[in-house]
């Protein structure tokens, strides 16, 4: 049921040329090399250490590993991770 609704929404978004992240409530992740990572549309931080950041998403979580990670510019809508990003993993 859930997946069928999503499939329909996706098709509608494609038809109307609306970005999918708005329609589907997906996170938009922008990476600048391996030094900056901007995550928009998140649902909060689960865990934060300089080497590991777990960010809660609409569905599941995003695990960022790296070195000297800091959170610059933390807002309701977006998180900016700075430092050396080594790995980015979805845990659904």
């Amino acid at each position: 049921m859930q997946s069928r609704k999503r499939g329909r929404l996706q098709r509608l978004a494609g038809l109307l040329e609306i970005p999918q992240d708005i329609v589907m409530d997906l996170p938009r992740i922008t990476m600048l090399g391996n030094r900056q990572l901007l995550i928009e549309n998140h649902k909060g931080i689960i865990e934060y250490t300089p080497s590991l950041i777990r960010i809660k998403l609409n569905q599941g979580e995003l695990i960022v590993t790296g070195a000297d990670l800091t959170l610059g510019n933390l807002q309701v809508e977006q998180i900016l991770v700075e430092g050396t990003v080594e790995e980015l993993k979805y845990d659904l």
Binding site: Y48, T49, P50, T70, L71, G72, N73, L74, Q75, V76
Partner: peptide
């Protein structure tokens, strides 16, 4: 809606 920045952990 409290704006935080330069979050680091030691």
């Amino acid at each position: 809606n409290i704006y935080l920045w330069k979050i680091s952990k030691k």
